[in-house]
Design a protein around this nucleic acid. Structure first.
Lengths: 136, 136
DNA sequence: ATGTAAATCGTAATTATTATTATTTAGAAA
DNA sequence: TTTCTAAATAATAATAATTACGATTTACAT
């Protein structure tokens, strides 16, 4: 997901092009790892002191709902990162040190297709946690 | 996990047998689904009005660290339930209506054994969410 | 029975998140 | 370009989950 693509999505959905959104998206573009709302706010407020909680949380929610960002829960906190490019369904290895991810093309649901016939399956989560080669 | 087993573990680790622990464990034994700390506190305070936040959260943390309870994050909230009996590693289908679970004996890590040689794998999570036959 | 560390209670503090209101701004329309 | 209006934002307050603290009580070893 690059900036142009993100703005296309925002425009398609009638959202305005604001400097704060630009700043947030630029940060996520440059720094492709999982960040908490607090991480984001701390970094942003260095360069742009007037950035409020409301703006951060509201835009994070907007971006997630539009598929620009993806969200997961790590160590009890919500984390966000740019949604990856690849179209195919996949999962993630997540480095618990630096937050970087590696795509895992395998999906375990493929192997349990009809294993739960009486159940309604709405969603699933498969994540692998550890240390990436750089942090190991 | 039954009450006797839970108490064995607590005793082995030098924890005292208190009435509050008994009350909490009995509730989880009877009601084998995922509950939030708040759910627990609300139910407990009906029968035992003097049950403080501190006691609930402290014991939940203790029980999780000893493997008596297991914990997961559902809809943005921490949930707890009795750790299941079965010794073999497994995963869960979780009903998002009633919180009941179904064991999934398959583990996706089996199929990615050596797929990430340069990475240190510390943990993983695989959960399936939806509605159980009763709630569907 | 007694002593002591652990556990609990009642409450306060902390932290993440959401909500509110006044003000500002992007983008459309005149 | 100027003006208008809904959307976005800032500043702050409110809410909710969780953790922390000091005083008191309790389990259990001696």
């Amino acid at each position: 997901m690059n900036l142009t693509k993100a703005w296309d999505i925002l425009k398609e959905n009638g959202f305005k092009e604001t400097s704060k959104r630009q700043q947030i998206l630029e940060l996520f573009s440059k720094d492709d790892r999982y960040l908490t709302a607090r991480d984001l706010l701390d970094v942003m407020q260095k360069d742009y002191p007037s950035m409020s909680y409301d703006t951060v949380y509201r835009n994070l929610a907007t971006f997630v709902s539009l598929g620009i960002l993806e969200e997961t829960e790590l160590s009890g906190e919500r984390h966000f990162r740019m949604h990856c490019e690849s179209d195919q369904h996949h999962h993630h290895f997540i480095c618990m040190d630096c937050g970087k991810i590696k795509e895992i093309p395998v999906c375990p649901m493929d192997m349990l297709g009809a294993a739960l016939p009486a159940y309604e399956i709405d969603n699933h989560k498969f994540e692998i946690y550890g240390k990436c080669p750089e942090c190991k």
